[in-house]
Amino acid sequence: MKNEAPYTVPFDTMEAFMADALKGVGVPEEDAKVCADILINADKRGIDSHGIGRLKPIYYDRIKKGIQHPVTEFEIVKETFTTAVIDGHDGMGHVIAKRAMQMAIDKAKIYGMGMTVVRNSTHYGFAGYYPLMAIENNMIGITGTNARPSIAPTFGVENMLGTNPITFGMPSDEPFPFVIDCATSVSQRGKIEVYDRENKELPEGWVIDRQGNSRTDTKQILIDLVKGEAALTPLGGIGEDTGGYKGYGYATVVEILSAALQGGSFLKGLLGFDPNGNAQPYHLGHFFIAINIDNFIEPDAFKKTTGDILRDLRNSDKMPGQDRIYTAGEKEYDKWLERKDTGVPVNDALIKDILAIKAELGLNQYSFPFEK
């Protein structure tokens, strides 16, 4: 079997399977559907690092190990007209995040802006999902989350900061909105996991060892990131010459906003281990901001200006040998057009995970093309 995903599974089938898998380990039905919806939306957009590939190792297995709670307790600790502090009590990050973003949107509908912050959450899937919720309401959406340590500070070699994405979404008059959703590291663990599933070595400059040298041995890197023997480089790369201090700075911004406003855990407190070395929940923090465009300008006028900016950028002079300039959100839209009639591509590593879950839970109502 080849690694370039020789099979595809229809999106609705895979979404239903993921929901049933999560239900099988104790996630309530409606919550399981929320999680599956967010996961499948990553696959629809070609964000394979955060779709079905994350189901087993990041959610299913963690629930089974007792380091993530399948039933989510969403506690509002403090609330004002425009803000809220939420404790997720280590429940399902997707469920916590969707409710928190919706709170920000509801506040922005009345007061023009809304912001919520979360402590004691877990991995919330691909960050772009939440600004897309704001966009559907003619709003600008912003979110960020901290994560277990993996980035070394500029001139450092110890993994201290998470990949800490900061994500913006803005509506436009085009078929797709502007959504910039990326880590503050050169790459992130999910993409390294994709390389591992495809048995590929990493490009130079993504990861360094304890001596500051670049590493490319994907499989061992995934082990050493957890052990602290390897670290991701910040956006901009190693040192200052290519702007690594910028990624380091933005990662720190996300860390502060994901911990300081809500009294949450940070840096080494997110390793997933207690002082005795026992596995524990990751206690992640998030923030969500919704800005109601109508409080500033008529939404269609905003969309038209946004669209004009994006079109002017794409129509600008191209580098020799390049036939296209992209704007954020465009490649994901193109991937959706490519995949909408075929479904989720699955390679041999994903097939193994899917079949393992199916066998463990007895989900025999599903018949996948790779089983024939």
Rank of each mutant, 00 (worst) to 15 (best):
K98Q: 11
I142G: 01
Y333T: 01
I63D: 09
R45K: 09
E360A: 07
D90K: 13
F11G: 12
I291A: 00
I192C: 11
N276R: 10
Y129W: 03
D341K: 03
A42I: 09
E332P: 01
F368V: 03
Y248C: 13
M160S: 07
I105M: 14
V117N: 02
I238N: 11
K65F: 07
K335D: 01
P275T: 03
E332T: 03
I96L: 08
N137W: 08
D31H: 13
E15S: 08
G128E: 03
I309P: 10
D341Q: 13
R197V: 07
A230N: 10
Y245W: 10
I291F: 12
E332F: 06
Y7H: 15
T305F: 13
R62H: 10
I52V: 11
Q211I: 02
N364M: 06
K246A: 08
I223K: 14
A152C: 07
T218P: 04
I208D: 13
Y333P: 12
K2F: 05
G269D: 13
F176G: 08
G239M: 08
G228K: 03
D323A: 06
A260D: 06
E30W: 08
G269I: 06
Y245C: 15
G237F: 00
D341Y: 11
A21K: 10
L337A: 06
G205S: 05
L235C: 13
P345W: 00
V186E: 12
V118P: 04
K64F: 11
G329N: 04
L313E: 07
D312N: 14
N347A: 05
T342E: 02
V346T: 01
N278L: 04
K98T: 12
I325R: 14
F302W: 04
R99V: 04
N347F: 00
M113K: 12
D312R: 09
N292G: 15
E75D: 15
K109I: 05
A356F: 08
K268A: 15
D312K: 08
S258I: 13
I40P: 05
D217K: 05
F81R: 14
T163S: 12
M101Q: 04
Y130L: 02
D87W: 10
T306C: 03
Y59C: 14
E73W: 11
G66I: 08
A21R: 11
Q188K: 15
K109R: 14
K191W: 11
G239C: 15
G128K: 00
F178S: 01
I76N: 09
G144M: 02
N276W: 13
H50W: 01
A259K: 06
M101C: 01
T242W: 13
G93W: 03
A104P: 11
D294F: 00
T327S: 09
E158A: 12
E201K: 10
I192N: 04
I76D: 14
A16M: 13
L222D: 08
S185C: 07
F288S: 00
E198I: 09
T13H: 06
K352Q: 13
H283N: 06
